[in-house]
Design a binder for these strands. Structure first.
Length: 418
RNA sequence: GCGGGCUUAGCUCAGUCGGUAGAGCAUCAGAUUGUGGCUCUGAGGGCCAUGGGUUCAAGUCCCAUAGCUCGCCCCA
């Protein structure tokens, strides 16, 4: 049997209702905040990601689906959404047409990782980016949008963690202090953290290793190294969040994996997810446009992992409620090409009803069973008797109530509200 | 990339000490040939993940591979 590629999943009809529901909320909330959709290609030149995400990150080093195309150009299936979106904004000169851009994206992304709960090789992300403001109110708007989406789909138990990495100056100053502190304990750190120390010392802070946690407990905190500008920005964000009643937890060890963040970083966590407990996250990235060689442009954004949302919702939502059951099943003993039957079928479908018929020429009884199995609201019983008298027998399946309707009165019958 | 567990019918799972497979649910068909749900009866459905090995004999024991899963790493 040919199987799907490792780490990819089919979304089956039984699951699609949940996806459609989530996608509906994403679009609706984006609209409420005045965000427009921007769709980029699923693949890009490899350098789009190498430049932006950071050469030393795992995503770039070992997780990208990169390959030379037929003209030997290195192509990469997008592992995340911010870099392509920024590329598109620059290429299409969108930021010059307006001093502020509100954009969202949604679609499949690709990372070559070992699959586990909440982690696949093809997965889906929704993200929103607010481009062109350096003020804390834009950070707050983004976080507010994210929270509204989570509440909109019905998730209430989640934590909002926030931190500030400060501007470049603050961050660099802190980095030096942290390295100084960690190098005193280097040999006590876990192997993983010793490796992190070399590549990206800030990441030692969110190690799960118990000894690492002990050591980083008394490490210097980034919040003590923020300069005046950075503090003002962070305080501004916290102030607005408090006023709009978004509960947040200040988490000085939250650093996040992508190199392009500065100032505010944040993450949404749920305990429903096991080891991959982050539903989504984001932050400010004032340097990214400059990395691409464009004019420096302040921006802030976030992304959700849709599969992770779905995992939570799967337990939370009665999926039955999302499924639209058929209105009518036609149980017929007439031939499949009978004029009376075909005319009725057409008439009902033109009434915007969901109408199902048997296509396997099965017995009257089997058709009745089928109408029950698919939970249709009504069965319409059709045979020579009805045909002769220009009528239908209409049976309400919930309670078995049956009546005869003339063909002319079908149009005014209310099928939807039983 | 590293470790643990798992893989038998469409689904959930039994399968003893090695002797070429079973249940429940689901599906389909019957129970006075135009009336569903409940009940009863019956039927179909299996390369026992794949490939090797041990053995007279392997779903069962051994090895490898793949996939799933739970962690590590990383991240959404």
């Amino acid at each position: 049997m040919i199987q799907s590629v490792r780490g990819t999943k089919d979304i089956l009809p039984e699951d699609i209702h949940l996806w459609n529901f989530v996608e509906g909320v994403l679009k609706e909330k984006s609209k409420r905040y005045g965000y427009s959709e921007l769709r980029t290609p699923v693949f890009e030149k490899t350098e789009v990601f190498v430049r932006s995400i950071g050469e030393e990150t795992d995503i770039v080093n070992k997780e990208m689906y990169s390959f030379p195309d037929r003209s030997n150009e290195s192509i990469t299936l997008r592992p995340e959404g911010t870099a392509p979106l920024v590329r598109a904004v620059i290429q299409n000169s969108l930021i010059q047409q307006s001093n502020l851009l509100r954009l969202w994206y949604y679609g499949p992304f690709f990372r070559y990782e070992r699959p586990q709960k909440g982690r696949q090789r093809q997965f889906h992300q929704y993200g929103a980016e607010c481009i062109g403001s350096d003020y804390p109110e834009s950070d707050a708007e983004i976080i507010s949008l994210a929270c509204d989406i989570l509440k909109g789909v019905g998730i209430k138990n989640f934590n909002v963690l926030i931190n500030s990495l400060g501007n470049n100056l603050s961050r660099e100053k802190y980095r030096k202090e942290l390295i100084a502190y960690l190098s005193k304990h280097l040999l006590e750190l876990s192997e993983d953290s010793q490796r992190r120390f070399e590549k990206n010392p800030l990441r030692v802070l969110d190690s799960k290793d118990e000894k690492d946690i002990m050591i980083t407990k008394s490490a210097p905190s980034i919040l003590d190294y923020l300069d005046k500008e950075s503090i003002e920005h962070f305080e501004g964000v916290k102030n607005i969040l408090s006023k709009i009643k978004i509960d947040f937890i200040i988490h000085p060890k939250l650093v996040r994996g992508l190199d392009y963040y500065n100032h505010t970083v944040f993450e949404f966590q749920s305990s429903e997810l096991g080891a991959q407990d982050s539903i989504g996250g984001g932050g400010r990235y004032n340097q990214l446009f400059a990395e691409f060689g464009a004019k420096q442009t302040p921006a802030v954004g976030f992304a959700f992992g849709i599969e992770r949302l779905i995992i939570i919702l799967d337990k939370l939502i009665e999926k039955d409620k999302l499924i639209q059951k058929p209105d009518v099943f036609i149980v017929s003993s007439l031939t499949p090409d009978d004029d009376y039957y075909l005319a009725l079928l057409k008439k009902l479908r033109n009434m915007d009803l969901i109408v199902i018929t048997d296509l396997n020429r099965r017995s009257f009884k089997a058709q009745m069973k089928e109408s029950n199995r698919i939970e249709a609201k009504y069965a319409i019983l059709l045979g020579e008797d009805e045909k002769k008298t220009n009528s239908i027998s209409l049976k309400r399946l919930e309670d078995g109530f049956q009546q005869i309707l003339s063909v002319d009165s079908i149009g005014s019958f209310n099928f939807v509200n039983k």
